[in-house]
Design a protein around this nucleic acid. Structure first.
Lengths: 210, 210
DNA sequence: TTCCCCATGAGACCAAAGTCCAATAGCGCG
DNA sequence: CGCGCTATTGGACTTTGGTCTCATGGGGAA
C-alpha cells in the first residue's frame, strides 16, 4: 500500500497556481495532492502521513491563513514539513513562519528550481522525522506493554538504583524486584542496563517520581 | 569579574543607530557594546562570551555583511544569539538569517518594544546555551583526565559489554578491566552505569570502534 | 466458576561486579 | 638513576544481579 512517489500537498486558493504547481510536482516524480483552502486540507488529514510528504502552503488565503494552518499542524507531532509561498509576503510573516519550523519561504514569482530544491529538502527532513518517529513508536509500544509495576521498577533501574534500594522504595522484597526487572529487560528487548537507559531516554520515559 | 548586566553587542555601520540602540539598551539595564563593522566586532571577540549576551546585527553593511558574520559566528560553538535589524531587508535574506539560527529579524523602523522583547528572548536562549555548555565542558574535562586505556574501557562499558567481553576485545585479563572500570567510575564521578551512559551521551562521547 | 494475568515471594545456585591488598614492568622526567 | 604514572595481573572475599523452579492470592474475563 505504500506509494511509489512522495506526496506533495499543495494548498492555495488560486486554482491556476494549484494546476501549475501540480504539474511541476508530477514532472519531478512527486504525487501532487491539491487543496484550495486550509480547511479543506485539514479535513482530509485524518492521520499524519506515513510516507514521505511535504506541504507547499500559500501564506494569504481567505479563511484560515497559512500561518494558522502551520501552527495547527505543528501541534500534532510528525506532521509534514511546510514550504511557504506567498504573493504578498512580508518580513514579520516570514519570521513567524520560520520560527514555526518552515523549511523555507518563497515569494511569488519564484524560480521553479528553488521550489524543487525546497521540496527535496523538506522530503529529506520528513524521512528523518518518520524514521525517528517509527523508532519512537516501537519503543513506546514496548513500554506500554509493561505492567504498571514493571514501569515503576524500570523507572528506578534507569536511575541506577540497586535492587535492594528499589525494593525499599516500593516496599517489596528484593526478590520481587528481580522478577519485575527480568520481565522489563525481556519486554524492552534490552540486553544491558546501558541499552535500557538509551531506550528510555530516546522515548522520553521519565520516572514519575513518587 | 562577572558583569552585572548582560551584554548587548550592537553592530551597525550607522553611528546614529549605534547611539540610539546603545541608549535603549542601557535604559533596559543592559551593557551595550557597539561596533561599526563586522570586522571590528570579530576582532574584538577573542573568545565566546562567558556571561549572557546577544548580538544586534545590521544586515547590510559595507565589507563583511550581517549574514556572513552570523555564519562565521555559528561555526564556533556557544556564540551568542543574533537579532537582525535591517533597513532594506528582503525575504530571502530573512529566510537565510532564520535558517542560520537568528532569534528574529526586524525591519527598520521597528518598535522598541519588539527589539527589547527579542533581546530578552535571545538572552534567555544564551543563558541556556551557557548552562549546557558549562555542563558539557565539565564532563569533557573529566573524560580528558581518563587515560587512553580507561577511555577504551569506558567506551565498551557504555555499550553494555560485560567485563569478560571487554577483556576479550582488549586482549587483557578481566581483572585488569575491573581496575580500569573502577577508575573510570571514580574519575567520571558516576555511581552507576546508568549515570555513566548519560554522561557520555550528553558529552557526545562515542566509542571509536576498533 | 474457572482460567489467566499480575504481583508477590522463597530456595537454590551461578555469574558478574566491586573491594581489599599486593606485585611486576615499561616509560618519561628530573 | 630513582620517582611517579600507567598498565598489567593475581588472590581472596563480598555484594549484586540473574536464572530456575515453585507457590500463593487477587482480580478480571470468558
Amino acid at each position: 500500500m505504500s506509494q511509489e512517489f512522495p506526496t506533495v500537498f499543495i494548498v492555495d486558493d488560486d486554482a491556476s497556481v494549484l494546476r501549475s504547481l501540480s504539474r511541476l510536482a508530477r514532472q519531478a516524480d512527486y504525487e501532487p495532492s491539491t487543496f484550495s483552502s486550509a480547511e479543506e486540507f485539514l479535513d482530509s488529514q485524518t492521520a499524519p502521513p506515513q510516507h514521505p510528504a511535504c506541504l507547499v502552503l500559500d501564506l494569504g488565503m481567505p479563511g484560515l491563513g497559512g500561518l494558522e494552518l502551520q501552527r495547527k499542524l505543528s501541534d500534532s507531532p510528525m506532521s509534514c514539513p511546510v514550504i511557504f509561498i506567498s504573493g504578498n509576503g512580508n518580513i514579520p510573516s516570514t519570521v513567524q513562519a520560520m520560527k514555526q519550523g518552515a523549511v523555507t519561504f518563497l515569494s511569488k514569482p519564484f524560480d521553479q528550481k528553488d521550489l524543487l530544491q525546497a521540496i527535496r529538502e523538506a522530503l529529506e527532513k520528513h524521512r528523518q522525522l518518520l524514521a525517528a518517529g517509527e523508532q519512537l513508536h516501537a519503543i513506546r509500544g514496548r513500554i506500554e506493554h509493561l505492567t504498571g509495576r514493571e514501569q515503576e521498577v524500570m523507572a528506578w533501574v534507569i536511575t541506577g538504583a540497586l535492587n535492594k534500594q528499589i525494593a525499599a522504595y516500593l516496599k517489596i522484597a528484593e526478590k520481587t524486584v528481580k522478577v519485575h526487572r527480568a520481565r522489563v529487560m525481556e519486554k524492552m528487548r534490552a540486553v544491558s542496563v546501558a541499552e535500557l537507559v538509551r531506550l528510555c531516554d530516546t522515548a522520553g520515559f521519565e520516572p514519575a517520581v513518587a
